[in-house]
């Protein structure tokens, strides 16, 4: 049976791992390659590296980091942040990244999703969507959640699926940093309306939140950062708890 995935996210700034509380207050949580190795050894199913400085600073690549991780880590990983062209993706994949995640650049130029999926295959194209619920409607936001767009979350998700996205990484800005749980209602609707895997992000605070996002949110994977980086939740414990509650996991 296909297992539900636990995905630690390593936000990278200046080569170090950081995690923003509501994307603003940054705290240092270690060396990315060492942390990645530790997560792979303790049972993480996949890793995401997001260069959070990239969108604003136009930093293009994380090539050295990607090579370092690919050389030492034996689970798949996704790289995101500042990716806006076929060339950007080509160099990341050539250096050992399994997937890339695009966000603002897809909103600015939706055809990028088509170009990437045609050139590299849907399986390596993750479209990350940050959205905030405003007056009952989920609105897509850019630049780490700072700038609202005109796009509705569900319409945009459907569009990128049609353009060839292989996965959606949905971060709820309302939940991110709160530790009150994932946005399960919106996640379940995404999972029902789309036929590609959905990664839940934003709001993980305890183990039950992961159970809930797999059961109620129908998520295929759940991403979190600070609860893992600060060892508030240990992945082996989390996997055991998920298994105990009947959720298929790799142990």
């Amino acid at each position: 049976m296909l297992a539900k995935r636990i995905v630690p996210c390593l936000d990278i700034k200046n080569g170090r791992t950081v995690k923003g509380v509501n994307f603003v207050d940054l705290r240092d949580a270690g060396d990315p390659v060492e942390l990645a190795k530790k997560y792979a050894e303790t049972g993480a199913d996949e890793l995401v590296f997001l260069d959070i400085s990239a969108t604003e600073e136009r930093r293009r690549t994380l090539v050295n980091l990607v090579r370092g991780v690919a050389a030492q880590v034996n689970i798949p990983f996704t790289v995101g942040g500042g990716i806006s062209s076929v060339e950007d993706v080509d160099i990341l994949l050539q250096n050992g990244a399994d997937k890339v995640s695009i966000n603002s650049s897809a909103v600015k130029r939706p055809k990028l999703v088509n170009e990437l999926s045609q050139k590299f295959g849907s399986q390596c194209v993750v479209v990350a969507i940050d959205a905030k619920k405003i007056d009952g409607e989920w609105i897509v936001h850019l630049v780490g959640g700072k700038v609202p767009t005109e796009l509705n979350l569900f319409d945009w998700a459907k569009e990128v699926e049609e353009r060839g996205a292989g996965e959606i990484l949905f971060t709820s800005m309302n939940n991110d940093g709160t530790k009150d749980g994932f946005a399960n209602e919106a996640l379940a609707r995404l999972s029902e309306e789309l036929n590609i895997p959905i990664i839940a992000s934003g709001g993980a605070g305890n183990m039950q939140h992961f159970v809930d996002t797999f059961k109620d949110g129908k998520a295929d994977a759940a991403l979190a950062a600070s609860v893992f980086h600060f060892q508030e939740i240990e992945i082996p414990d989390l996997k055991q708890e998920l298994k105990r509650q009947g959720i298929p996991v790799r142990i």
């Binding site: 199913d45 399986q123 590609i196 895997p197 790799r250």
Partner: peptide, 13 residues
């Protein structure tokens, strides 16, 4: 077939 999510992504037995 589209009775499952496509692509299959993740860990399976």
């Amino acid at each position: 077939e589209n009775i499952v999510k496509v692509p299959q992504i993740g860990w399976n037995q």
